[in-house]
């Protein structure tokens, strides 16, 4: 009384159940990411001219991450091919690289997130805007009435824009080159020590900072969840689930294939995410 076609393909469809299942799941994933891509397009097309930011992200790091993901994609298919050729030891070695690549991807992504969360835009009471990375906080931090007090000083390493640029509505445009081109002002990178009491607004580059960062964080976080989930499944099949290779090798190979299909999809999404978020 077993469910048929869990291992061998059904004759008229040529598919085993899990393969059809994963493709159906991927179809819904296409619609999920498709909706977010549509949102990206709509928000970008709908933004006021010149407001959509460019150049916030670190392209070399993003390129490195793309390479890492491409590597994992080829290893996952090579691992499956090794299993097909009955070479379990080779599969073990290659698939380990996949999992390590996934780990590396998540680490690099975390570094990028950290970089954004320590990147501040500070609006001073006199209208100047200081944009830079947090070096340290000084003072403050004690809890009063259940609320953590802000620091007395924050030290940033970055650039300063004069007040008149904010008045022209340009302080929200983080693309340094654009600002410099427009104003002829050449911003110099240096350290600023800012008293909290002199500021009107201190905000880091989280999803709340602008709509571009909002869609960046949403898309990449959702993608990263897929990476983590996919890697967890691949790792489980590689490690604890590997006993099945002894009892039911064909089904085991199918599992590797199906998890691999999911992994390729995750790679495929990133192939689009990288240019639209980092480069365009």
């Amino acid at each position: 009384m077993d469910i048929p076609y869990t291992v061998l393909p059904r004759r008229d469809t040529g598919l085993y159940n899990a393969k059809l299942g994963i493709w159906l799941f991927l179809a819904s994933e296409v619609m999920l990411f498709g909706a977010l891509f549509s949102a990206y397009i709509l928000l970008r097309v709908g933004s006021y001219p010149g407001v959509w930011p460019h150049g916030i992200l670190n392209v070399p790091v993003g390129t490195l991450n793309t390479m890492v993901l491409i590597c994992s994609s080829v290893t996952v298919v090579l691992a499956w091919a090794a299993l097909k050729a009955n070479d379990f030891a080779k599969y073990r070695k290659i698939q380990l690289v996949t999992v390590l690549c996934a780990l590396a991807f998540v680490c690099i992504k975390s570094y990028e997130y950290y970089d954004k969360f320590t990147h501040y835009e500070v609006v001073m009471k006199d209208g100047r805007v200081i944009d830079g990375h947090l070096v340290r906080k000084e003072g403050g931090g004690q809890v009063v009435n259940g609320r953590k007090q802000p620091p007395e000083f924050i030290v940033l390493h970055g650039v300063e824009f004069p007040a008149e640029m904010k008045a022209a509505g340009m302080a929200k445009i983080p693309l340094l080159e654009a600002i410099e081109k427009k104003s002829g002002h050449h911003a110099e990178h240096k350290e600023f020590r800012v008293a909290w009491s002199d500021t009107t607004r201190v905000q880091n580059y989280g999803p709340w900072h602008n709509t571009y960062l909002a869609i960046y964080f949403t898309l990449t976080a959702l993608h990263a969840l897929h990476v983590i989930g996919g890697a967890a499944v691949i790792f489980w099949i590689w490690g604890p689930g590997a006993a099945m290779w002894k009892t039911d090798p064909e089904r085991y190979t199918n599992r590797v294939e199906v998890s691999g299909l999911f992994w390729h999809f995750v790679d495929l999404v990133w192939i689009f995410l990288f240019p639209i978020l980092y480069l365009l």
Partner: peptide, 26 residues
């Protein structure tokens, strides 16, 4: 297999519909 092509074709059509009609409406 043909079944996979059919499913993905359908998905791709709706994906394009969602994206293009939304942008057109905008």
């Amino acid at each position: 297999q043909r079944m996979i092509y059919a499913i993905l074709g359908l998905t791709f059509f709706f994906f394009l519909g969602m994206m293009l009609l939304t942008v057109w409406a905008y």
